[in-house]
Write a protein that binds this DNA or RNA. Structure first.
Lengths: 334, 334
DNA sequence: ATATTTTGAGTAAACGTTTACTCAAATCAA
DNA sequence: TTGATTTGAGTAAACGTTTACTCAAAATAT
């Protein structure tokens, strides 16, 4: 591959001059510019970003860490980030940590070694261990769909507890009294705990009686978890008329399972999802859900790291408003 | 950030020695190893991959180019690639070209500048222009879900024409005689043309009469395209009993549109999809489809570039077998 | 005891850029 | 004309590694 030296030789100038025309600094005549540009053209020269990175301390690369999330959710989140990052001339390295601490540490090491300009950390609690590593490297960091109460890291998220509260309250307002929840992994500090809490609070603030077994949780937040959870929920509580799901995928899995079990949705059981992924529009029935504007949030998070990279020290955390998207998976009971 | 010099100073050795213990070359005593390792630990030193890359000419990064595909399909494809690539200690830069030639060229330039070790190009025709650019850079290239008839580039794909032929024949075998197709973008050389061809060939080889207007095409291969195409198909040909869809997403959009139009699927109209993305399992009804093992294919493509990077010059192209996955969206008519 | 090999470690060049510094030639002011 | 300034361009150091070369000290062979 041609290097700047080759170009310099071909154009009969020094490499400094080539560099200058490349970067549009001043210090060369129109004639030399032409000569250099022609040489570049002829040799098909592309400046070596690695060498540039070494000296400029910028790689124009940012790293993204995502845990084991449902694929559609990740894909929407990533797309928002990727677009924004690329618009600014950088690229994105995506790392699936699978929620494993060890893997996360490895990826962190990798990203630091690669000298990424910034890191976006999503949907998981930022362990002290992770933070220290990043902190030490001096790489700007922003949190997406997660937050840290004690560490000074800006974040972009939705108020999960409140959103879940509203989802549940929505069911109550439609006249439902027997409401269950399929909660995904209820120990998950991000998508589990707060949503369960919101659910409970809504019920208790409306004095609706409730048993522990009306919240059924599973490993994750996917179709299968939704389907399985729904089945156990219905065998334990056949009189339930509404379900709050911790993710759209779970809601979809539930609808499918209902179909197999001969349970009509929403005629017999209503459901509200969480996330508002694209497919909600074309499910049968179309899914009523809490909209969490992931693509937009990803975009904002990306802008935030980019700004930090460009020197804007501390960014303000932002909490996005959620929204109830009414479609047809919830039946009015009153 | 600490550099190798800092480590050398702290451990009281030369940078060459540090480098040696870092890379496990011989030439140091047990004592110095310990000293160096301790210094590394204390300083939280992480070797600078950029500097390493400059000298070793390896960035441990591979680039992926994807056009405007449906998000779920991309996400499955990417996941197979990413896992494999990461297992081998490299990372992946994903570039969404949106099927724009100009953007593609820009990304290509970017990937070359970044000195990626390999490139995976997916689901689009490899223009001469693209090829020349990559060729010139000497970066190993493999094609995924596409192929080049004239250029010497290894590829991983499925036989689209044959797959579509089989899908259509499957409908015929179930006793369908009035079969339409919603084709996505029928000019797309990869996912359009061959599938339309396969469809036509199946009909004609079974002497089933057919009109041009029974193939309706649209911009892309997404839900909405499916929904819209189905609507026009049904208004023009209300007597149709089966539809061959060019993608699962289109089939899903069609089912949803059918629901709105009061058309029962599969009771009134049957449908077969294409791709076998995960969600087919939980659609209502579960979608019969042509399985194209994208995750697996991505994995194989990734292995191929990796092998090429490691010096295995020419790789054999592989065409994956497709498979009909029978679920419940096709009704038997005989 | 001497000659030879092995071991442990340092020095410096190289990778492909950018940029501070230098300087001759050209332009301008007086 | 002379001195001052501007313009165009080259030289060389620096970025953080790896590695070929070198060499003294230690270990081994004779």
């Amino acid at each position: 591959m041609a290097t700047i030296k080759d170009v310099a030789r071909a154009a009969n100038v020094s490499i400094a001059t080539v560099s200058r025309v490349l970067n549009n600094k001043s210090g060369f005549s129109e004639d030399t510019r032409k000569a250099v540009e022609q040489a570049i053209e002829e040799l098909g020269y592309v400046p070596n970003g690695v060498a540039r990175g070494l000296i400029s301390k910028r790689t124009n690369t940012i790293g993204l860490l995502v845990p084991a999330l449902s694929s559609m959710l990740v894909s929407e989140m990533v797309s928002g980030i990727e677009r924004t990052v690329h618009e600014q001339g950088s690229s994105l390295i995506v790392c699936h940590t699978e929620s494993k601490g060890k893997k996360t540490m490895q990826y962190l090491q990798l990203l630091i070694a690669k000298q990424v300009d910034g890191i976006i950390f999503t949907s998981e609690v930022l362990l002290q261990e992770y933070y220290q590593m990043i902190e030490r490297s001096g790489i700007p960091l922003v949190l997406l769909s997660t937050e840290s109460l004690n560490l000074p890291v800006p974040s972009v998220k939705v108020n999960d507890r409140l959103a879940s509260f509203h989802a549940t309250e929505y069911m109550i307002r439609q006249g439902h009294k027997k409401i269950g929840m399929i909660s995904g992994n209820r120990n998950d500090m991000i998508a589990g705990v707060p949503r369960v809490e919101g659910f409970r609070m809504a019920l208790s603030s409306h004095q609706i009686p409730f048993e522990e077994s009306m919240i059924v949780s599973h490993k994750g937040f996917s179709y299968i978890d939704g389907a399985k959870s729904f089945r156990t929920l219905m065998t334990d509580h056949p009189d339930i008329t509404a379900v709050v799901a911790a993710s759209d995928e779970m809601a979809l899995g539930m609808i499918s399972e209902g179909y197999k079990m001969g349970i009509q949705i929403p005629e017999q059981v209503s459901v509200i999802g969480y996330d508002n992924i694209q497919i909600c529009n074309v499910s049968i029935p179309p899914l009523t859900t809490i909209s969490q504007p992931v693509a937009k949030m990803g975009e904002v998070a990306a802008k935030m790291v980019l700004d930090m990279i460009h020197g804007d020290e501390k960014q303000e955390s932002v909490v996005f408003p959620h929204e109830i998207i009414e479609r047809q998976s919830v039946k009015k009971m009153n």
